[in-house]
Design a protein around this nucleic acid. Sequence first.
DNA 1: CTGTTAGCGCATTCAG
DNA 2: CTGAATGCGCTAACAG
Lengths: 365, 365
Amino acid sequence: MKTTIADMAKKAGVSTATISRVLNDRAEGVGAQTRARIKALIEETGFQACGVARGLATGKSRSVGLIIPDIANPFFPPLVRGIEDALQARGYSLFLCDSDRDMQKEKSHLRVLLEKRVDGILLSSTISGFDGRFRDLDERGVPYVLLDRVIDSDKAGGQVYLDNRKGARLAVEYLVAGGARRLLFINGPEELSISRLRREGVEEAFRQTTAGYGHRIDKGTGSEPESGLDPAGKPVTEPVSLLYREGDYTVAGGEAVVEAILGAPGQRLPFDAIFAGNDLMAIGALRACKRHRIRIPQQVQIIGFDDIELARLVEPPLSTIAQPTFEMGIAGAQLLLRLMDGEKPRRRTLVMEPRLVVRKTTRRR
Amino acid sequence: MKTTIADMAKKAGVSTATISRVLNDRAEGVGAQTRARIKALIEETGFQACGVARGLATGKSRSVGLIIPDIANPFFPPLVRGIEDALQARGYSLFLCDSDRDMQKEKSHLRVLLEKRVDGILLSSTISGFDGRFRDLDERGVPYVLLDRVIDSDKAGGQVYLDNRKGARLAVEYLVAGGARRLLFINGPEELSISRLRREGVEEAFRQTTAGYGHRIDKGTGSEPESGLDPAGKPVTEPVSLLYREGDYTVAGGEAVVEAILGAPGQRLPFDAIFAGNDLMAIGALRACKRHRIRIPQQVQIIGFDDIELARLVEPPLSTIAQPTFEMGIAGAQLLLRLMDGEKPRRRTLVMEPRLVVRKTTRRR
DNA sequence: CTGTTAGCGCATTCAG
DNA sequence: CTGAATGCGCTAACAG
């Protein structure tokens, strides 16, 4: 038999209201000694008030929902951990939902979470298309924060994401500075907004570095990259070339892209540097290169994206664009917490900074 | 304004009871046409009944709690994913809690979950010591399943775990068969029951293989391992030696153990094979070995445990004892589901089979 | 300072 | 087949 607040009241010879007051640490309305006495009683009986009943009465469930594509994707665990830590510090519990980037599943999860009356929602969607999911949240007044996803600012929700464009730019610039002339860019599926953003970053950097090369020629940069000899005899300082491919953000996907290129009949390596949309694909690319006995980074430089734990454990350790994943989790949760507190934060959009992590798959400037 | 079941009743010109009945698909008590009419209304308004109120009325929350040490540990994501999939198929939501193997945090999470009136609990504790946590659950009648943890059978909860002893035995046997004579066993902290079990497995295999060697000599096994020459001139077929160390189940921990050994002044390599209590430590050991220019697997063979995704991505790919992590998640969740359904399953203990995965850090038999 | 009471929104008898 | 009434356990006004 569950023991209720009424049982406790009887046992303590007070009313349920009093029990409730000390249970919730309400300052007003309870004498010091009665409070102490009741606290002791609660302590020794190990009594716990029913959260469901409280939820009904208060309209708050003290829990929030998180929807991510897949917890088994190594990008997410640190993010989730950050979220959980920040939430737990404030006494909130976390519902975890995997959507597999399937919009139906995402909607279904959203529905269940709403039904469970979560106090807020964290959504790492990356799926494009405004299908009213956010409008729905806005209407119902449920606070929400989007992770890694940009959305119209007229919406009430918060958002925290990385400056993806800048990250991509950082990568390409470093690669070119390291001598890369023929770049292979393995992007993720363009349906995802992060992929589009990264592509834009690549193109920006590409135009910029290309343009800058006239200057470099003038200065007569001595050392030329080994693979920089154009069959047509043109100098390597010619405009950088860009080869664009799409993968699916998996190791196998990255591997397949490179394999397809290297497997094709061709006189020489069509690229001397690879920038992959995430570390998983970069690692796949790395594997394919190694299988073809390509020396990394002498013949081909590689840079990934995310800086998952794996990145520094592969051989050679992968240079990459780091996302502060754990911190994004913390920041996202804290933003949601403020929204749930009813605050109207000035900045509901947090842009995190990417950071270039140089390891062994790139050459020094 | 939240719309309630009463609003719907008014709108449909029926009572709340009727709405409730069609909402819950109760067969009895609603005419076919009224049912259809109400269903249509619910559909077009997108009405959702409040789960909290339902929970209070029914005593079921349709959610379960999961407590694991750390979602950022690569062992757990597949497990969690399996759990989530199995649970979601039955309409349950999952609360995720990280305990950091801290018993206080674990208790606190347990408390919160109970307060939230979850219908069941999944606990991956691995912490030893009977401190009444389970007794508490038993008393309150909350179904629970322990993952990776053995417990007295008089308790009501279920349990699913790997045959850790067997896994360890598999590893040692394979190493010895591959020519290993001086084994370094890097175990996890002995406080954890899985560590103790694995140690027992190692010792069993050790005694067994050692005993078996007389036989092998007779058969005159030709090829001797390169590192098998004892300075004292004894044949390599002498009893296998065992060096025991403890790490903390992290890459850095495994690395430190090996580094400490290799860094010490010594005439020769004190081991020709390493069995690590998990893949993370094995990878650390691998790194240390490579740094010392030790050839893998020619000079030193290595086997890890778990078969996390990382294992096949390091260089060389790590041989390891695989746990069917995802399946364990599924199985654990399904067992819990049955318990929650009020069934009394015959077997409340599921023992999963370890599997040797041979990759490139071991020699062929 | 403390008790009484009326909901919170839904499920579930029990009548009709 | 359907509706009215009651209770789930707690909080929050409102009295006293």
